[in-house]
Design a protein around this nucleic acid. Structure first.
Lengths: 208, 208
DNA sequence: GTAGTCAGTGAACAACTGTGACCACAAACG
DNA sequence: CGTTTGTGGTCACAGTTGTTCACTGACTAC
């Protein structure tokens, strides 16, 4: 029951992480609902029954993956939406940041995009909650901005949701062009910037 | 080889449709990549091997489902984007049209949303192609509008993509609120309208 | 130092999967 | 008419799946 600081739990966490990593690799060409528990343990090199020491089911593992994929992303939000510098430059920086994240963690991004509407209810729910949290943070950040003066709360919430959805669309777009020629990737980035810019224009003239 | 007009092919098409329908039902709580061929035939009441008379694999069936779900949607595009009537009223009509379609064909919409980023490559590809066709049609329709004077082709394409993505987001939002209280559904509709309106505002002031 | 905890093992199970070869029989064609 | 065609059915195969149970042995706690 106590917080055993020994090498015992360290090893356990190591296996757990190995299971998560192996699952993420396997999920690059299938959905969570078809991921077998044995498949995962085989990839790691442990007995099938060892799986139960860490997760109740593959759905449970999926929820853990959601936390791993989205939990560490919150700090990024603030710096992205924060109103520093010129608008176009800020947009370019945000798109570049997304592109970098996708390049650094492609499997995580693919997992979230895939399972957001996937076949496993608890995982869908976990993603929905996490994205709602993102939207709330974005809303709070937008509310601070002087440009949001006179905006109703519902309108702010709407805009925040638009931004979050757009962020995911952009991420999955970059994912598709990950191993495409450099030129196509630049084109995708330009399109993403244009879309964000159009939303910004709409935001600026919302109250006209 | 000839076009046998007999009752032979009629029965075959009937079985094929039964397989598609059964698959669609089964796919409401799982992804295509975990859909078993036997599972489908069992639901229809035919022998497992009969499946092969109609589809090479479940992935093949998935592609057929994409055509069924999106193929008949093209006529809807023109009437939705066409510039008739007041802007706000047009938006409200478009959102209502989407809501109606989701209510009428929830399983189809769910399938597309789920498999768009799903684990079966050929199906992803089929959806991507179909959505690209939609975007092209929207672009063509937008190009006719007087409001698009002075727009570059890339900008038109960007806006068309934004509209198509937004359409899908709205559809999947309605899907989630399908069996939710009436009030929540109205709220979702209002948010969707707001988002479309913001895009419209951005479009109007794009060249400022 | 000894007792207890617990991550991981190995074997066994019933149920399931995709796919093969072969057969039945009604419709289509000459 | 007889012959061909082809949908669907039957039976069987080899693999795979999730889950159970009793177990081992290294670690922790007293």
């Amino acid at each position: 029951m106590s917080h055993t600081p020994g090498a015992r739990q360290a090893q356990k966490l190591k296996t757990r992480q190995a299971l998560l990593d192996a699952a993420l690799v396997l999920l690059e060409e299938q959905s969570l609902s078809s991921l077998g528990l044995r498949e995962v343990t085989r990839a790691v090199g442990v007995a099938p029954t060892a799986f139960y020491r860490h997760f109740r089911s593959t759905a449970d593992l999926g929820v853990a993956l959601v936390e791993e994929a989205l939990g560490s992303l919150h700090p990024m939000i603030r710096t992205t939406v924060s109103p520093a510098g010129d608008s176009d430059e800020r947009i370019a920086r945000a798109v570049e940041l997304i592109a970098g994240h996708v390049a650094a963690h492609p499997a995580h991004v693919r997992f979230v995009a895939r399972e957001r509407h996937g076949g496993v209810q608890p995982v869908r729910e976990a993603i929905r909650e996490e994205l709602a949290r993102f939207a709330e943070e974005v809303r709070a950040e937008l509310a601070k901005d002087a440009e949001s003066a006179g905006w109703s709360d519902a309108d702010l919430r709407m805009l925040a949701g638009l931004y979050v959805d757009q962020m995911l669309i952009t991420a999955s777009l970059f994912l598709e062009t990950l191993d495409a020629p450099e030129e196509e990737r630049r084109l995708a980035a330009r399109t993403a910037e244009r879309q964000l810019r159009l939303i910004s224009v709409g935001r600026r003239h919302w109250l006209d």
